[in-house]
Design a protein around this nucleic acid. Structure first.
Length: 225
DNA sequence: AAGGTTTCCAACCGCATTCCT
DNA sequence: GAGGAATGCGGTTGGAAACCT
């Protein structure tokens, strides 16, 4: 049987959805064989996980998600699926893509490797505090200090523990350069590579995530960077 | 408006791991 | 335990869309 490749059609999506609804996730080769699709099991799995799954969120990566990705990447490296486990609705593919297109681009601008100590310091001591500050500022600007997502309201605490200890040496070394390169300043409203747009409305930053992050930072403090 | 360039992301590929017989 | 099949993961790519000149 000839196997189809490339973009999925609406009809194919419907067929896969119908099959998974009936038989559940998993057994992707069977799904490919018996759903009537001329696709490989791998292709079906990918399409379902990255696009058709009801839990998948669309839209740009929020500030909170950016922060979480950066912190988790400093702990786990390119373990995209592991990182994705802590970003509800986001796929490893999306996070990988974000990292490549946004973060690696900044490393390139700084003329250093994304895994170099220079860039990791820049993330840790320059970018992360600014990101947290932006999140805090936006939080205070919203009524009652709470974030609202659709009909839900969820309180958010961005604890100071997330702020890395200031490093005067690093500030001197990288401060202005990094800020200039990333196009962020004290009054930035997040329209640079930080994202922008309606990130509050899309946020799923929750206390559980923050708690988890804090635990990781405590536990791995000595292992990281 | 047109053509060129860059950005973004869906999907593929190869390798590793897990599962099953 | 061995071997094959299925599944999962991370790296890469192709092409559409957005942006620039």
């Amino acid at each position: 049987m000839d196997v189809r490749k490339g973009q999925w059609t609406e009809e194919e999506d419907s067929m896969l959805k119908a099959y998974v609804t009936l038989h559940g996730e998993g057994r992707w080769n069977s799904a490919a064989r018996f759903s009537g699709l001329r696709r490989t099991g791998k292709s079906c799995r990918l399409r379902w996980l990255n696009y058709l799954r009801p839990a998948v969120r669309r839209g740009s990566i929020t500030l909170e998600e950016q922060l979480l990705i950066i912190q988790l990447h400093s702990i786990w490296g390119n373990r995209w699926s592991k990182i994705a486990e802590h970003l509800p609705g986001r796929t490893d593919n999306e996070i990988k893509s974000y990292w490549r297109t946004k973060v690696q681009k900044q490393a390139k601008k700084l003329e250093c490797d994304v895994n170099s100590p220079k860039f990791r310091d820049a993330l840790r001591y320059e970018y992360t505090p600014r990101l947290i500050e932006q999140i805090s500022r936006a939080k205070h600007e919203s009524p009652s200090g709470q974030l609202t997502y659709g009909n839900e309201t969820e309180s958010v605490q961005v604890d100071q523990i997330l702020l890395p200890e200031s490093s005067s040496e690093t500030q001197v070394t990288y401060g202005s350069t990094v800020a200039e390169t990333w196009g962020i300043d004290e009054q930035s409203n997040g329209n640079g590579w930080l994202g922008g747009g309606d990130y509050w409305m899309e946020s799923e930053w929750c206390e559980e995530n923050i708690w988890f992050l804090q635990q990781q930072l405590y536990d791995d403090e000595d292992d990281v960077i």
